[in-house]
């Protein structure tokens, strides 16, 4: 998809994104993470919503034992020992909306229940947006990414544009 609505003050860019999901079994958690960490280039995020960056790929802990590796480009195959966990390609189901502009706080507080002022750069939060589960990732003072399910993407972009048009 090309650039969405480009209101002055808030730009919305949408693109496909590749995601690989890793799940660890509850009784093998420590071993699973010890095995996965070096394969993903280093440390794994400790808390849900926390992210780590490895070689321009983003790793985010989505749930207590679930990780997403997010990348714009091709992702290498990474096999997981079935005794420790499993891997699933999720490259098609989500769209990455990049929002940026000075209106961002005004817009976001009309979209999601997130305290933007408390959200650190590089921090992610799973939250509902118009009753749709999304991942919000703060990428700068006036920038964030929203990972939204593909089928909802256009509807959510319409909402964001409508909200954004209300700011003077």
């Amino acid at each position: 998809m090309a650039n969405g609505s480009d209101q002055a003050g808030l730009g919305i860019a949408s693109q496909d994104c590749g995601i690989v999901q890793f799940d660890g079994w509850h009784d093998a958690r420590a071993r699973f993470e010890a095995d996965l960490a070096p394969r993903l280039g280093g440390h794994l995020p400790k808390k849900v919503g926390e992210t780590t960056y490895q070689h321009s790929k983003l790793v985010v802990r989505i749930a207590p034992r679930r990780f997403w590796l997010i990348s714009d480009g091709l992702l290498p195959p990474i096999d997981i020992d079935p005794e420790l966990g499993c891997m699933l390609q999720l490259g098609e189901g989500r769209v990455r909306l990049g929002l940026s502009g000075w209106k961002i706080k005004h817009v976001l507080e009309r979209c999601v229940v997130v305290d933007w002022d408390s959200l650190q750069e590089g921090e992610g939060v799973l939250v509902g947006f118009h009753h749709v589960p999304v991942l919000l990732l703060r990428t700068g003072s006036f920038q964030c990414d929203l990972f939204v399910p593909r089928s909802f993407a256009r509807s959510l972009v319409d909402w964001i544009s409508d909200v954004s048009s209300g700011v003077r």
Binding site: D23, H26, G91
Partner: peptide, 10 residues
Amino acid sequence: RVSVSSVSDE
């Protein structure tokens, strides 16, 4: 030891 994931939009 089971993982379930929604892939409806995939």
